[in-house]
């Protein structure tokens, strides 16, 4: 194809734009002096001192474990809840369907940080009554995040469900399948790629979430990565910059791995299989 060199040029340009700040972070993380002002774009040294300090002087390991638990649970549950709702919105016709869809979009538009005060008051009561899902527990935070499980992700999944021909589930229904069988055995396998994409998006959003987690998790050992790492540079910005960048890189590792793991689902393509025929 004659367009291939052009495609490479576009992709290479975008990659350069995407990578240069990351390269800077890498360079800062490997910089033995560990300060902001002494960091260049390309690594000037190869020292693991910043990583060493990160793991020995902070509770990075437990922040990491907490984040994986919370983000893993929240994204898995959110994808499932979202898929259930998307199935109803895409395949069924009921009163309030259009309103419900619009409401999901509108609710996301309220400035959330102000609701923080309310959420704090609410969970103060929850912590008194049910400490197991109160402040400083991953379970409470996951529940709180799942409040947003229906939202833009439902739209994303509904959009893809709409592109699946209805004949597929209609013929299954004629063959005697129930709506639940249609959902679990026909729809879900077909939309696996979009489930993967949605799961990835929720995972990333949860790892990056700072405002609510900062209010929710105050014990050093229960913090997530974003809360813990913010504490690193809120005081000593210049001196802790190397340690901060080391933490930034390690935080990105699980997300990159999840993406790698899910990529074959994403790439396998929505229309490559059964739908096409």
């Amino acid at each position: 194809m004659r367009t291939v060199p052009l495609r490479h040029a576009v992709a290479a340009g975008a990659v350069a734009f995407a990578l240069f700040p990351i390269l800077f972070v890498l360079s800062a993380a490997l910089n033995p002096r560990g300060t902001l002002s002494s960091t260049e774009l390309l690594p000037t040294g190869l020292s693991l001192e910043n990583f060493d300090r990160l793991l020995s002087e902070t509770r990075f390991a437990s922040w990491f474990a907490n984040t994986m638990l919370i983000a893993g649970l929240a994204s898995a549950a959110a994808v499932f809840l979202g898929a259930l709702a998307a199935y109803a919105f895409s395949r069924m016709r009921f009163r309030g369907r259009r309103t419900g869809l619009l409401a999901l979009l509108l609710i996301q538009m309220f400035p959330q940080f102000l609701a923080i005060v309310t959420i704090f008051l609410m969970f103060s009561t929850v912590t008194e009554l049910w400490p197991a899902v109160g402040f400083n527990t991953p379970w409470g935070l996951v529940l709180l995040y799942l409040g947003g499980a229906l939202g833009v992700n439902t739209w994303l999944m509904k959009g893809f469900l709409d592109t699946l021909p209805r004949e597929l589930d209609e013929s299954a229904t004629i063959d005697g399948a129930t709506h639940a069988q249609v959902f679990f055995q026909i729809i879900l396998p077909l939309v696996a790629p979009i489930l993967a994409v949605t799961g990835l998006l929720v995972f990333i959003a949860t790892v990056n979430e700072f405002l609510i987690a900062n209010v929710f998790l105050t014990d050093t050992g229960s913090k997530t990565l974003s809360v813990g790492m913010y504490g690193l540079i809120s005081g000593e910005r210049n001196n802790n910059f190397g340690v901060f960048c080391a933490g930034t890189l390690l935080t990105a590792v699980p997300t990159v791995l999840v993406f790698q793991f899910l990529q074959r689902y994403i790439v396998s393509g929505l229309t490559a299989g059964a739908v096409k025929g």
Binding site: A11, A14, V15, A18, L19, P21, I22, F24, V25, I204, V207, N208, F210, L225, S226, M229, Y230, I233, F244, C245, G247, T248, T251, A252, T255, V256, F259, Q260, Q263, V267
Partner: peptide, 19 residues
């Protein structure tokens, strides 16, 4: 290319804003 292009999204955004 896909892996490299997705990297900015994989980086923690609050940290990258400060960077």
């Amino acid at each position: 290319y896909r892996v490299l292009l997705i990297l900015p999204y994989a980086m923690p955004s609050f940290a990258m804003l400060l960077v």
